[in-house]
Nucleic acid binder design. Structure first.
Lengths: 222, 222
DNA sequence: CCTACCGATCGGTAGG
DNA sequence: CCTACCGATCGGTAGG
C-alpha cells in the first residue's frame, strides 16, 4: 500500500477487461499483494456503483472470483476494506498530482497556469477511467470511524497543501476575489460535484471542464 | 403532500423539541396527515445522518414513537418513504425559492442581484436548520428507482428554470465567462458541496457564503 | 483461501 | 396502528 498502484488511469481498464483471468505468475510474481489489490479495486468499483452499505462482501468476493468468506483473509472487516480504498485513493491522487506538477514545471510558475494544472489533474483524479477511489472517499466518508477520518484528513491536507499558496497568490493579485478559505471550499465543491453528473460518453472533455472552471473562478486580466 | 409543510426553516426545530408529545388534537385536527409528516421528517433526519441503507425502518418508527411494523401502514416500502422525503424537499424548495424572489422583487431585476437572492436562498434550502430533505435528495439518489429519478428531475428542472435566464443574462453581459451549461453545473456543485462541510456552529454565516460565492463567480465590473 | 456455519438484523406482512 | 412473525441476507468466524 505504500507504493501506489500504477496510474489507475490506464491500468484499471485493462484489468477490468479480464476479471476472470487468474493472476499470471510470470517470473517470481507473488500473488499476495495482487489479490489484495484486486479486492481493493473491485470494492472501489462496487462501493461507487451501489454504495458501501448496499454492497455485500459477497459481491466483492464474487467480483474477484473468491468464496464469500475469503475477503476476510485479506481484510479484517468490511470497514477496513473501505478504508483501504480511500487511503489508496488519496495516496494515488497525491502522487498523480505531484507528477502533473513536475511535468508542467518547465516554466509554469505563474499562479493561473498552476491552478489550471491542479484543476485539470483533479478532474482526472475524479473522472478518469477506473478512478473510483476518490469518489468513494468523497461520498462514503460517513461509514468510516473518526480515527480513520482523521488519518484521511491528513492525506487530504497534504493534497490541498499544494493548492493553498496558488490560491493565495491569485487572491493577492486580484484574480480571485472571494475569501481564500471559502474560495477553496467552493472550488473543490464545484470540482468534486462533477463526479455526480459527468458522463464520459457525452460531449464535454476534461479539458473543457478545466477551461470552464478557470473561466468561472478567475477574474479577467484588466 | 401537495401543500408544502410550513417553512421547514422555522417549523422543524420546534417539532424536534418535543418528539415524545403525542399530537395535540386541538379542534378537528386530523391525525392522519400529521403522522405521515412526522415519519417523513424523522426519516429525513436519519437518512441524512446515517444514510438510507444504514437507517432501518425500525429506527424511523422509534423516532416517532411507533412500533417496528407501523411505518408500513403509512408507506408501502422504505423506498417510498425515501422518495417522499425527496419529493417533499423539492416541492418545499421550489416554494421557498418562489417566496424569496417575490420578496425581493421590489426593484431587483438586475441579474447580479437576482443571482444573489437565488444563491442565498439555495444555501438556506441546503443548510437551514432542519432542512435535511434536499441533502438527502442530493446524496441518496442512488437508492431510488429510475422512474422516481425521472419525476424528481422534473421538479429539479422547475427549480433550475429560474436560474437559467439569470445565468444567461450574466453570461451575455460578460459577468460570467464560462460556458452557460457548465457554469450552472459548476456553480450548483460549489453550493451543494457545502452540505458536506458547513458547520452552523462555526464562524461563517449563510450571508458570508453567499458573498463569497458571488465574488468567486462574477467578473468584477470593469 | 475454501467449507460450513452462526447470530443478528432487516424489510415487510397477516390478522386483528 | 400493534402483535407476532417470516424469509432473506449479511458480516464474520472456526477449522481445515
Amino acid at each position: 500500500m505504500d507504493k501506489p498502484v500504477a496510474r489507475a488511469t490506464d491500468a484499471d481498464t485493462a484489468a477490468a477487461k479480464r476479471p476472470r483471468g487468474r493472476p499470471r505468475k510470470t517470473l517470481g510474481e507473488r500473488d499476495d499483494g495482487n489479490r489484495r489489490v484486486e479486492l481493493i479495486r473491485a470494492a472501489a468499483r462496487l462501493f461507487r456503483k451501489k454504495g458501501f452499505d448496499a454492497t455485500s462482501t459477497r459481491d466483492i468476493a464474487a467480483a474477484v472470483g473468491m468464496q464469500s468468506g475469503s475477503p476476510f483473509y485479506h481484510f479484517k472487516s468490511k470497514g477496513a476494506l473501505l478504508y483501504a480504498v480511500m487511503e489508496e485513493g488519496m495516496r494515488s491522487a497525491i502522487a498523480q498530482q505531484g507528477r502533473a506538477l513536475q511535468k508542467e514545471e518547465q516554466e509554469t510558475t505563474d499562479p493561473p497556469g498552476l491552478l489550471r494544472v491542479l484543476i485539470r489533474n483533479h478532474f482526472d483524479v475524479l473522472l478518469g477511467p477506473g478512478n473510483d477511489f476518490i469518489p468513494v472517499m468523497l461520498y462514503e466518508s460517513r461509514a468510516i470511524t473518526p480515527r480513520q477520518r482523521g488519518l484521511l484528513a491528513q492525506l487530504q491536507s497534504e493534497y490541498e497543501s499544494v493548492w493553498t499558496p496558488v490560491l493565495a497568490a491569485l487572491q493577492a493579485s486580484g484574480r480571485i476575489r472571494a475569501d481564500a478559505k471559502l474560495a477553496r471550499l467552493l472550488i473543490f465543491g464545484a470540482l468534486n460535484w462533477s463526479a455526480q453528473w459527468f458522463d464520459r460518453r457525452q460531449s464535454a472533455t476534461l479539458d473543457d471542464l478545466a477551461d470552464a472552471a478557470l473561466a468561472l473562478f478567475l477574474q479577467e486580466i484588466p
